[in-house]
Computed example of a mutant assay.
Amino acid sequence: MIPKGSINTELEVTEDVETTRTYKITRNKIQGITDEIEALKQAIYKVLNTEKYEHPVYGFSYGIELESLIGKDSTYAQIELKRRIQECLLQDNRIESVDNFKFEAKGDEMICTFDVQSIYGEVEINKEVNI
């Protein structure tokens, strides 16, 4: 038997938007839920404080290599730090750019300040690194 009628050939495409809601971590404790810019700040903090290849629970692309900068010349460390920060943060599709790097050396530490432009707005991040 051949069906009578027609088949609707026009498909409606819908796009699911992933939420950024996640657990809020405060002083090493989970305390509620956060999303958007605050969730992004937390994700940036986590990736910049996770040594790459150190923890088997994370994939090889997660984290940043900082230990290999210890004992290096400060100019080399600045160039590499900028590249490594951009490399690890730009993997997040919420982040559009990482720029305006400023470095301040204090003894055997370097304080790196930079701006992250995201789909939620701009945020300034500080990261201390042993060199």
Results as ranks from 00 to 15, higher is better:
residue 114 F to G: 01
residue 93 N to S: 13
residue 68 S to R: 05
residue 22 T to N: 06
residue 125 I to N: 02
residue 103 F to C: 02
residue 66 L to W: 08
residue 18 E to D: 07
residue 20 T to E: 11
residue 99 D to A: 08
residue 89 L to T: 03
residue 77 A to F: 02
residue 57 V to W: 06
residue 56 P to V: 13
residue 110 M to L: 14
residue 83 R to N: 07
residue 34 T to P: 03
residue 60 F to E: 15
residue 24 K to N: 12
residue 88 C to A: 13
residue 10 E to M: 11
residue 59 G to M: 10
residue 4 K to A: 10
residue 7 I to W: 09
residue 10 E to D: 14
residue 29 K to P: 00
residue 31 Q to A: 13
residue 49 N to D: 09
residue 25 I to F: 07
residue 28 N to W: 03
residue 85 I to E: 02
residue 123 V to K: 09
residue 85 I to P: 06
residue 38 E to C: 11
residue 55 H to D: 13
residue 118 S to A: 10
residue 97 S to N: 15
residue 3 P to T: 15
residue 122 E to T: 15
residue 120 Y to E: 00
residue 98 V to N: 01
residue 11 L to T: 13
residue 12 E to S: 11
residue 95 I to W: 00
residue 50 T to Y: 05
residue 17 V to I: 14
residue 43 A to Q: 04
residue 39 A to E: 03
residue 124 E to W: 04
residue 117 Q to A: 11
residue 100 N to R: 05
residue 102 K to E: 10
residue 66 L to N: 00
residue 128 E to C: 11
residue 44 I to T: 06
residue 26 T to C: 08
residue 7 I to Y: 09
residue 118 S to Q: 05
residue 54 E to T: 01
residue 125 I to A: 05
residue 15 E to R: 13
residue 3 P to Q: 14
residue 1 M to S: 14
residue 120 Y to F: 15
residue 127 K to P: 07
residue 79 I to G: 03
residue 95 I to S: 01
residue 113 T to V: 10
residue 122 E to L: 06
residue 2 I to A: 07
residue 64 I to R: 11
residue 39 A to T: 00
residue 54 E to G: 12
residue 46 K to C: 02
residue 61 S to G: 08
residue 30 I to H: 00
residue 125 I to H: 02
residue 104 E to Y: 08
residue 86 Q to K: 12
residue 38 E to W: 01
residue 89 L to D: 00
residue 27 R to N: 15
residue 43 A to K: 13
residue 111 I to L: 09
residue 58 Y to I: 12
